[in-house]
């Protein structure tokens, strides 16, 4: 019998196969997220829930005096993609006005679904490593879940789902 799925010498490695999805940046942020944890003081928070797979995230937002997002923290139980996405999100929304943040979500969602980002500026380019999810339809929601929670927090709602 042949040996299905086994890659012998000279064939591609697992890293070659999934490198589009699990880029080094994602593995790093997934393993050692910098913004993980509940903020000691926050102005808004919301939970995100993906009922299909059981991923959960809670996002905490602290506003600056001018109403921009000063800091974001999160607590998550989920896969490498969702944790890396939450961490990168916290990085890119720092200092942004809520309206800006909403626009960034729309840009990011488009990128996650299509792999393209025609209007990506330098900040949004930081999210580019997540664009690989577009090839894995069941994983797109892993990447967008933290953003759904953030949007709910900005809107003063307690919870969101990525359904």
């Amino acid at each position: 019998m042949n040996r299905p799925g086994v890659s012998g010498p000279g064939t591609t490695t697992l890293a070659d196969d999934v490198g589009d999805l699990y880029q080094q940046v994602i593995l790093e942020h997934g393993r050692n997220p910098r913004h993980a944890g509940r903020l000691t003081a926050f102005d808004a928070s919301a939970k995100g829930d993906n009922p299909m797979c059981g991923d959960r995230v809670e996002v905490f937002v602290k506003y600056a005096a001018d109403g921009t997002v000063a800091r974001t923290g999160f607590e998550a139980r989920g896969c490498a993609i969702s944790i890396a996405s939450a961490d990168l999100m916290a990085e890119v929304v720092a200092g942004r006005a809520p309206a800006d943040t909403r626009a960034m979500f729309e840009t990011f969602r488009h990128m996650a679904q299509t792999g393209d980002c025609p209007d990506c500026d330098a900040t949004m380019e930081k999210l580019r490593p997540l664009a690989g999810v577009h090839d894995y339809p069941s994983r797109v929601k892993c990447a967008t879940l933290p953003w759904h929670a953030l949007m709910a927090a900005l809107d003063g709602k307690g919870s969101a789902t990525s359904e």
């Binding site: 896969c79 490498a80 894995y136």
Partner: peptide, 9 residues
């Protein structure tokens, strides 16, 4: 490794 990552890999 989270279960979803295992399944994808």
């Amino acid at each position: 490794a989270h279960a979803h990552d295992i399944a994808t890999l």
